[in-house]
Write a protein that binds this DNA or RNA. Structure first.
Lengths: 209, 209, 209, 209
DNA sequence: AATGAATGAGGGTTCATTCAT
DNA sequence: AATGAATGAACCCTCATTCAT
């Protein structure tokens, strides 16, 4: 949103963010929001068409950021994991050094974008046009994952891919929930988490049962 | 009373399960439930004291099953992961063979217990006395994990443990959601998932960054 | 009621008495009554046509007892108060000695009849055919009082008579409420009360303002 | 908003007064009130937080008025009754003249305050925070009475004091009920009533049984 | 831009009563 | 004689939204 918002609009959106985060869209109360924002119910409808419009205003930017994140960085991440690595006897060192190289940039560029609003989008959008955002995001990650599988020659079954994608999403959400106010801890935890996921995926792809 | 008491009670509970799964406790509507169950609002209160009593009836058994699951099987799982394994050059084979040995029994005994009701318990219990069940379960798994860490000499930070525990929970939930009606697929996916998690944890514990 | 009641019937009526006393007719719950009486809602309707029939069963005898009390003892009480007494210089002694003579019999005959059920009749009968019982009783007492006035030649205004009658009723009720379980205290208090009322009436009749 | 806020608020309170008077708090229906007041159920909650808040609005002022009445006028009334008066041979004249002196002022200052709302407070407040108001008022009057007793050297038993206090309350209530719309009649009746009570108390204190 | 009065559907719950068993 | 399942109206209250001011 390039358009400058009025103070009232911003106050409403700020309180709405808290409300949507706490209760989700359906369970959120416009009255509570405007009361917290210090304005009136009537005035609310001067700024937003209805409750869903407010929701959109709060999350739409975050939504597009995430879409961009998924699509833009496909190439770069594409090379991060390949079966070849796992075949090497020193695979642990290889992954480790790769992570050391990539994570700082990865984290500095991507994470600042994610916030409470991302959590709202995924967990609290039922009843809005974004209600399948979680699923769509999962699908994006899942397709991403399948492509990796095809490239590296070790296809995971569709449902495993979906599960892993969903896990990745829920991991991000959990991290943001825990440390949305503490960037440093968040990044440290995220690093750990990515190692966990990558090790897990590697294990899943590399081990014949 | 033409209809046997249990029939209506079961109808109500069946519909309640769907409703609680779809909306969570707070957002569920008793009126919707009884309409779907084909009875009247007044009659509902002949069977259940109130909405929360209905919730408890739907969910309490599942709750205790899960608690039992966590506490009973601590020992057996305890031996599944140790740092020593990861030090071996053939660690992949070792894990693989161990899983092959243990998973069938693990799955056959534990999984049949989990159902939609488990999902309700974790995701839809806000406003009930079970509302912190998700957190309590996460903590159980987390403590479980920390102990493993201490035993194997590689402590993970507290927040990583919590994250992994939460991930494990959300993974179970995701699997149940996807395949609660298809036991076979569910078990296959769960096997994959456990490999993923174990590999991930192993990676997290075994690799120095 | 000469007809012998079954145990169930008596249990219901006993619990109903408590319930009607505590909540009044309208606010009483048939469910609570039958639960306390240890029977079922269906069976209740085998014994009583409906809630009001139960109420009638509980209070009707008391009602007729009171009517009888008012009408039967008119003569005897009629002589208890006359203007002549108040004209005597030793009126206090006269009243005192009269009370001493009459009260024992008065109390022993009349009071045992009054119980919780009398209170129910007066205070908790709204919504039943007895709902104007309180008023009817007041009117009886009031007419009683007016006649005394006419006899003794000092008419009180109609509204004063009504007020005094109402006071007398409410006094009886208050005494029963306080000591319905303690006959001795009840009689002592009632004696005091009658002195109060008689002195009050005497004062009202005898003093020119 | 075409209609000024106060108009609706007043309409609601006026109808609420009638409703509370007729049914008491617990048995009053918000729907009946708003129907009579010509507004909607939703709008009611724009004016009052809930049913009890409405009750408080109707009744709180009256409550404090009565408390003030009891505590402020203690002294003045204190001198109205003493045993010495009853010992005089011309006690009737003495009381009469005292009443003639004091009553006009007493009545003109105190009575206009009492209304239907006082009745509601005493008889219809069950279920609200005022539910023991009746008892508290009775206790005030009772303590009042006991003090008189101590001063004049003729203690009445505790239960007699309570009874008389309760009688006094119920007398006030009865008068208001009868003449809440007719100030003149109300005052006349109240005068009579006070004579009655005083004579009664005098009789009770002065006569040895 | 700002206010809050007004609406009515729907939320959970209690109730007296009926009637098949 | 006894049971309790079934009904639907009514209870208090919350909600998002509209609109006159």
């Amino acid at each position: 949103m390039q358009i400058k918002k009025t103070e009232v609009e911003e106050a409403i959106m700020a309180e709405a963010e808290k409300e949507f985060y706490a209760y989700g869209f359906e369970h959120s109360s416009v009255r509570r929001i405007i009361r917290a924002a210090g304005t009136s119910i009537g005035n609310f409808y001067n700024y937003f068409e209805n409750k869903e419009a407010l929701f959109n205003a709060v999350v739409s930017e975050e939504y597009h950021t995430f879409i961009r994140f998924i699509t833009q960085h496909e190439q770069e991440e594409g090379s991060m994991l390949s079966r070849d690595i796992l075949k090497q006897p020193d695979w642990k060192q290889q992954i480790s050094s790769m992570l050391n190289r990539m994570l700082p940039e990865f984290i500095s560029r991507i994470l600042p974008d994610f916030s409470i609003r991302f959590v709202i989008l995924v967990e609290g959008s039922r009843g809005t046009r974004y209600e399948d955002t979680g699923d769509r995001l999962v699908n994006l990650v899942k397709e991403h994952l399948r492509e990796h599988g095809r490239e590296t020659g070790c296809d995971l079954p569709d449902d495993s891919c979906e599960l892993l994608a969903r896990q990745f999403m829920s991991g991000l959400v959990a991290i943001i929930k825990q440390y949305h106010h503490d960037e440093k801890s968040r990044n440290r935890l995220l690093t750990q988490y990515i190692i966990f996921v990558m090790s897990g995926v590697a294990g899943l792809m590399g081990i014949e049962l």
